[in-house]
């Protein structure tokens, strides 16, 4: 279980996260949605320890992550923009990651096979297209079979065939009882892949509930419509209270 406890983050004067409190549980899949710059990536990065919160605490399985680093063994992270050492080949990168992460017993190379990455193992990272880079990121996130998966815009830049392969993989892992945090702007994908929805706006969590409940509340059948209705309702409420 992961819980954010009053996490705030300021970049200079800009308040990116404003006392975010959120509990997420295993075997559930969470869709993190919100407009650009609402703080989704910052939330994910602070969970990984890449960004240090200004105040508040993040707890991973009863332990604060602010001084810990071993918890990252249990996380597979697929960044929004994969930044890798440019001079090495895909094969070297995969080898390097396997060397650095000690858990060798349960390697999952399904995505490497499915994306046919082994065919381009000797290609250098700087020569890769955006989509291939995404595939490498995805394969690395799933490689160590971690119980927690964090996917930041996983399907952006992938071709339709790869998107389907990837979605199948995500669904399979979800059924194995993994905790997933997925951000995306493609709400149709999230409708299939996730069970819960977390809506962030201007660094605050505005809504958190299961997708079923959201659809019921808004009387909509599709997640996209439901979110739109939710936002409209919020705006209406705000204009009344003002």
């Amino acid at each position: 279980m992961i819980s954010f406890r009053n996490v705030s983050k300021k970049f200079g004067k800009l308040q990116v996260l404003d006392s975010v409190t959120l509990d997420v549980y295993p075997s559930k899949s969470y869709a993190l949605i919100g407009p650009n710059g609402s703080g989704k990536t910052t939330m994910i990065k602070s969970l990984l320890g890449l960004v240090v919160p200004t105040s508040g605490d993040i707890v991973f399985e009863e332990k604060s992550i602010l001084t810990d680093w071993q918890y990252r063994e249990k996380i597979g992270y697929m960044p929004q923009i994969g930044r890798y050492p440019e001079n090495i080949t895909i094969g070297q990168l995969v080898d390097m990651m396997r060397n650095i992460r000690p858990s060798q017993d349960k390697i999952d190379e399904e995505l490497i096979d499915a994306f046919k990455l082994y065919k381009i193992y000797d290609k250098k990272m700087h020569s890769l297209s955006g989509g291939t880079r995404q595939k490498v990121s995805a394969a690395l996130a799933f490689l160590f079979n971690p119980p927690v998966l964090i996917l930041d815009e996983p399907t952006a830049g992938l071709d339709p065939v790869s998107v389907e392969i990837f979605k199948e993989k995500i669904t399979a892992e979800k059924l194995k009882g993994k905790l997933m945090l997925i951000t995306s702007h493609v709400l149709n994908d999230l409708d299939e892949l996730t069970t819960d929805v977390v809506y962030i706006f201007e660094g605050r969590i505005q809504y958190h509930n299961s997708i079923e409940a959201l659809k019921r509340e808004t009387n909509e059948k599709r997640l996209g419509k439901a979110i739109a209705t939710l936002i409209q309702q919020k705006e209406l409420l705000d204009s009344i209270t003002e």
Binding site: Y77, R83, P85, R101
Partner: peptide, 16 residues
């Protein structure tokens, strides 16, 4: 030049 490498390592179970 090794900023990417550092970033990649920091998302792994490696101490800063």
């Amino acid at each position: 030049n090794s900023y990417e490498f550092i970033e990649l390592m920091l998302a792994q179970p490696v101490n800063r």
